[in-house]
């Protein structure tokens, strides 16, 4: 029982981890992308299409590869759209983000119902995603079943989060990206191409979030399109705040969020309505974290200074 909860927590937490890693990259460039839920929907659509394209080949590797590539492509498109509106046209970031969310959810709904009518299922494709990466015979002790029984995308997500954490902390690329989000005018004066960084952050971040959407459909729900991704998207955005804009903390945070998200399903004797109530716990925890960090008033735990602001050189 305990092992099952923790195993499932890691699995569902990974959806949040993908979403929040992508969103952290975007927010570090000074853009608050509230379109993440929609972008994850787009990623899910792309992932399903991609995986089903290769399902005939029967190769697990090919199915996963096309699935990831297509989900990144679709989600990257959503990120590029967001970028054009907020970077080049300097639209309000919140309004644009919410629009993208509505758009993405609509695309998924429309496409999903069409697939339903055509009786297309993604169960076959999802088998490649849920198949344990290290094979079936890693052992049945608690450690193996919690940590080694997952599909490859779980490990990919953690790897991406670690790589992003290292890039942000230990490279000049990360330093420049931080500068762009903190003070674009300074970055500009130092010779950094601000718009290039913003676009790349928006597109790459969205692509990473998009894998989360595909992972949710093809792994967590085993190819069923009946569940709502948006809730997972909002939790990912909350996780960004929870982890103080650091992907390294995000790995741990995603696990905590996963536990909190999955726990209501495993508590016996909880009514359906109470389950929905228990699902708000992650948001409460995020609010609590916000309150706690506000006590410390440490500059390092604050969001990027120019988050949500458009940059226009001639404004100086």
């Amino acid at each position: 029982m305990f092992t099952v909860i923790l195993t499932q927590a890691i699995r569902f937490g990974l959806v949040f981890l993908y979403g929040s890693t992508g969103e952290i990259i975007i927010e570090k460039s000074g853009h608050l992308n509230l379109g993440i839920p929609g972008i994850m929907c787009l990623g899910a659509v792309g992932g399903c299409i991609g995986a089903n394209l290769a399902v005939g080949s029967g190769s697990t590797f090919l199915i996963i590869l096309t699935g990831i590539l297509f989900s990144m492509l679709f989600a990257g498109f959503g990120g590029a759209l967001y970028g054009v509106f907020t970077i080049s046209l300097r639209c309000n970031q919140n309004v644009t983000g919410l629009t993208i969310t509505t758009f993405g959810a609509g695309v998924l709904g429309f496409w999903g119902s069409k697939m339903g009518r055509l009786n297309t299922t993604f169960y076959e494709a999802s088998k490649s995603f849920t198949a344990p990466m290290f094979g079936d015979n890693v052992g049945s002790d608690w450690f193996s079943s919690i940590f080694l029984s997952h599909g490859p995308l779980v490990y990919l997500g953690i790897a991406i989060a670690i790589i992003v954490a290292i890039i942000l902390k230990k490279t000049r690329t990360g330093l420049s990206l931080n500068a762009v989000g903190e003070n674009p005018a300074v970055a500009d004066a130092s010779g950094i191409n601000v718009n290039k960084y913003k676009y790349l952050a928006c597109i790459l971040g969205s692509a990473i979030s998009g894998i989360g959407g595909a992972f949710y459909i093809l792994d967590c729900t085993r190819g069923s399109l009946e569940y709502v991704i948006e809730a997972m998207g909002w939790l990912s955005v909350a996780l960004v705040i929870f982890s103080l804009w650091k992907p390294s903390i995000s790995i741990l945070g995603s696990f905590i969020f996963g536990v909190l998200y999955i726990l209501p399903h495993y508590i016996a004797g909880v009514s359906f309505a109470d389950k929905e109530l228990l699902k708000i716990i992650p948001y409460l925890v995020t609010a609590l974290v916000l309150i706690i960090i506000s006590f410390f008033k440490k500059r390092e735990t604050q969001p990027p200074s120019s988050l949500g602001l458009s940059y226009f050189r001639e404004d100086r």
Binding site: R172, L175, S176, N178, A179, E182, N183, A185, V186, A187, A189, S190, G191, I192, R299, E300, S305
Partner: peptide, 18 residues
């Protein structure tokens, strides 16, 4: 001054170096 408040002095100096 054109400096990023959150960075150390050293990081501000090497920022954007080609």
């Amino acid at each position: 001054f054109k400096l990023v408040d959150l960075f150390t002095a050293g990081d501000n100096i090497i920022l954007g170096e080609e």
